[in-house]
Design a protein around this nucleic acid. Sequence first.
DNA 1: GACGATGGTCAGCAGATCGAACTAATCTCG
DNA 2: CGAGATTAGTTCGATCTGCTGACCATCGTC
Lengths: 150, 150
Amino acid sequence: MADPVPAPDELNVGLLLFIPYRAMENRIFAALAQAGFDDFSPAQARVLQRIGPDGTRLTELAESAQVTKQTASHLVDQLERTGYVRRTPDPNDARARLVRIAERGAAAQPVAASVVAEVEAEWRAHLGERRWRQLREALTSLREITDPYR
Amino acid sequence: MADPVPAPDELNVGLLLFIPYRAMENRIFAALAQAGFDDFSPAQARVLQRIGPDGTRLTELAESAQVTKQTASHLVDQLERTGYVRRTPDPNDARARLVRIAERGAAAQPVAASVVAEVEAEWRAHLGERRWRQLREALTSLREITDPYR
DNA sequence: GACGATGGTCAGCAGATCGAACTAATCTCG
DNA sequence: CGAGATTAGTTCGATCTGCTGACCATCGTC
């Protein structure tokens, strides 16, 4: 992030990415809170959303959310205490444990998914189908060179 | 942020935005640290980059960085202590103070700008000129409905 | 010139996040 | 096989982030 006061349409791409990202996060967070899921934080959500259906290792969660494993561990602690996730032993590696979605987490998922769909629909409507697809396409491609987690 | 394990190409847009955003931030942060500007945090940078050439009010900084004015004030405190910015009185309003880039901040700017340019060039090369422009265009348009600060 | 709105600060607290140090299980190879 | 290196995860302690609430000073308005 740099370059104070760029020309109006010349905002650095970092900022351009941040703005809608943050907007999406806020929307999801607000909707979940309104639906009664008000006992977790955005940071916890960033971990939660990365848990796969068959459970995910802590280290993987940490990498993909781009935080240290200590932080991830801490966040999982909280999510476990509030019933969103559960830690289970990893059958393939006695050192590891799989973090899995628990009851409350499963209940929150459809709510989150529906807000995401709602926001995406708004964005698609604003951009038009063509530009929307171009956006997704470009971001997906960009992921190849910017995603440290595969 | 939702929907654990979406289909491969179906990653929710929030995540797709986050990945390159974070990559950009990391790159800038690393480059600045390497150039000797290792005494500030990403949070401070998020405020710093929003300061205009003629100074910017704290409230404006807070809004555009999407934090409370207390948080912004705190971050500016730190930036002031380390010599990146300076608070000056606002000639038009005795209540207000303009936050301005100071020596150290001015020294960091060209470094930051050059990394941004470098990363953008890489991305442009990866996407190709056409898709790059489409990306910027779509993000800029999206800003109209997602930027709470104007 | 009183009153509500606005720009900022101070204080205090909860959460996020990191680095260091440590334990336990796995892997690699001579 | 067994020593050493690696990997998964945790605990501890410190710092930073960022919020709410309470305040003060200045502005703008009627």
